[in-house]
């Protein structure tokens, strides 16, 4: 598994290397991917903007903070406006919440559980959605600051940094596993994966275990890949035809940003459902 990942990494690195080399052709002074004056600026990882006490602050981290600040700001504003007779905004938010909660109740077949997991699913959706859509604002990616002699963008889409998507994937993974253990009990839950009742069941259990751990990778790389690929695609389109051509691509990426937020939240919900299903009922 490690070998495969390393290969994938080097493959991407190679693809990346060519892109960077292409950019470097146009501007000999360019070093690494930090080239903006001409060429396509494509960097696989979030770049460091500045450092606080040896703690690197990357452009994606900054953007994450902006997203969180906006969400919390909205929550504070919204909380003061909540009334028994809802306004348009409140009605909209309530409709979203009720719809999601109803869907979760249907999926989990338990209203109490649905209510318990609602904050997690909703936060994942709101956070990923807003983070993805904010990345299309003017200035994101085009505002530059100098760091260590090179120009780096001040902001970068949070999901275009594997640290962020991996953090979300870890949270999702941990919640799913812990939920399974709490609802089913440790031995019953472990019995889903380590099963000595028959050779076939044993192999099936091991495969399930691997696919469970594999979710960490699929969760994080799906979101990262979609958002990052969108950025690269728009950057390339901008490089060739700066006007009009990127518009449909950006519209599509806005849609992708929404879909990826939905997918991340829904998959977390489905995996929670899978983890709480009784192994004897499900087979």
């Amino acid at each position: 598994m490690t070998g495969v990942l390393a290969q994938m990494g080097s493959f991407l690195h190679a693809v990346f290397g060519t892109a960077v080399a292409y950019a470097a052709e146009g501007a000999p002074q360019a070093e690494g991917g930090a080239e903006h004056a001409s060429g396509i600026h494509v960097v696989l990882k979030a770049e460091e903007v500045f450092r606080i006490f040896d703690f690197p602050i990357t452009n994606s981290l900054l953007m994450t903070w902006v997203t969180i600040a906006l969400l919390i700001g909205f929550a504070l504003f919204f909380r003061s406006k909540i009334a028994m007779i809802p306004g348009k905004l409140q009605a909209g938010v309530e409709m979203l919440f009720e719809g999601v909660l109803n869907y979760m109740t249907e999926t989990l077949e338990d209203e109490k559980l649905a209510r318990r997991f609602f904050p997690l699913i909703m936060t994942i959706f709101l956070f990923v959605f807003l983070a993805n859509e904010l990345a299309f604002l003017p200035g994101i990616g085009s505002l530059l600051v100098e760091h260590n002699g090179t120009l780096v963008p001040l902001f970068r889409a949070p999901a275009a940094d594997l640290n962020m998507t991996l953090a979300l994937a870890i949270i999702s993974f941990v919640v799913i596993e812990i939920t399974g253990v709490i609802v089913l009990g440790f031995f019953k839950y472990a019995g889903k994966y380590v099963n000595f009742s028959s050779p076939v069941n044993f192999v099936v259990g091991i495969i399930e275990l691997l696919s469970n751990v594999g979710r960490l990778i699929s969760f994080s790389f799906r979101l990262f890949g979609n958002v990052f690929a969108g950025e690269v695609m728009i950057a390339v389109a901008l490089f060739f035809v700066a006007y009009l051509l990127p518009v449909p691509l950006m519209a599509f990426e806005v849609f992708v940003g929404f879909i990826q937020a939905v997918v991340f939240a829904m998959l977390t919900l489905f995996f929670i459902k899978l983890s709480i299903m009784d192994p004897h009922e499900s087979h």
């Binding site: 690195h13 979030a46 690197p56 969180i68 594997l162 640290n163 953090a167 870890i170």
Partner: peptide, 22 residues
């Protein structure tokens, strides 16, 4: 290659935790 950094990862975990609670 992907710029995975324990400190950043932890920061993002905390970010999400704060957002979740808030």
């Amino acid at each position: 290659a992907f710029g995975i950094d324990g400190k950043l990862l932890l920061a993002q975990l905390i970010n999400f935790g704060v957002l979740f609670v808030a």
